[in-house]
Design a protein around this nucleic acid. Sequence first.
DNA 1: AATGATAATGAGAACGATTTGCGAAAAGTC
DNA 2: GACTTTTCGCAAATCGTTCTCATTATCATT
Lengths: 139, 139
Amino acid sequence: MNNDAQLETDLRAEGVRVTRQRLAILHVLRSAADHPRAEELLTRAKEQDPSVSQATVYRTLAMLEKAGTVLKNEFDGAGARYELAGGAHHDHLIDLDTGEVIEFHSQKIERLQAEIAAELGYDIEWHRLELYGRRPKAG
Amino acid sequence: MNNDAQLETDLRAEGVRVTRQRLAILHVLRSAADHPRAEELLTRAKEQDPSVSQATVYRTLAMLEKAGTVLKNEFDGAGARYELAGGAHHDHLIDLDTGEVIEFHSQKIERLQAEIAAELGYDIEWHRLELYGRRPKAG
DNA sequence: AATGATAATGAGAACGATTTGCGAAAAGTC
DNA sequence: GACTTTTCGCAAATCGTTCTCATTATCATT
């Protein structure tokens, strides 16, 4: 039932060593409902295992990103924010007032993107679509 | 005929002082067909006026961005790339092999973005849409 | 053209996020 | 449990960008 075990299995399958620190970071990522920054991940991981260091957080995130396990989002220039890759592809709407990140997906937009790229003679490898907005003040 | 004069007039109209350095940077922006980084802009501006410094390039770009004269693009985390804002709004397709930046625009995508945001209860302030792709190898 | 008030400059130090070098510690293998 | 290799923590290094501050340039006024 505990998916942390699943993550551990995945790690082993890829031939990487399973360390306390990596498990702590993975656990934090798994239980994060938001899109935390590296610094915040460090803080949370330390609660699990105080020995986790900043360098390891970055090293682990880089490794997990390459493995496709985590997504690194570089929103408006204030440090990257991370999330587990598990689910379906989605884009982001960032609340300019609160910093909150809302996920959304539009099959139509994806299709249009592919069409446009094709017209220009390109195959899309990946894309980034971010909407920055505010909740209108209730009148 | 020379649009540099026009840019100078605009500067004065906004109450900012017209300096050699600013003119050099504006000229470089105006004659750039690409989307150069700050470092590259510095190099080019120095050809016009060797006294231009790095600090002034960044200060001038920040000022012009705030004035709406230049657009700052933060593509894949390797330093911002700039362009004059003059024309119509557009998004970017980045060639992953060459780094070349291609501009495009889709009224349909813009409309869909606004719809999605509205459904989520938001007004879009601005957005960022970047496609990263490759030109398929000719078979 | 000289003056003076104020804004802009260059040089380099400082910054924040991230990466790296290195000796010590832990993981996986036998 | 000893051995090999990976990963670790720490601190120093890097990179793009911003800031500090003493100096210089701009521009309105003479």
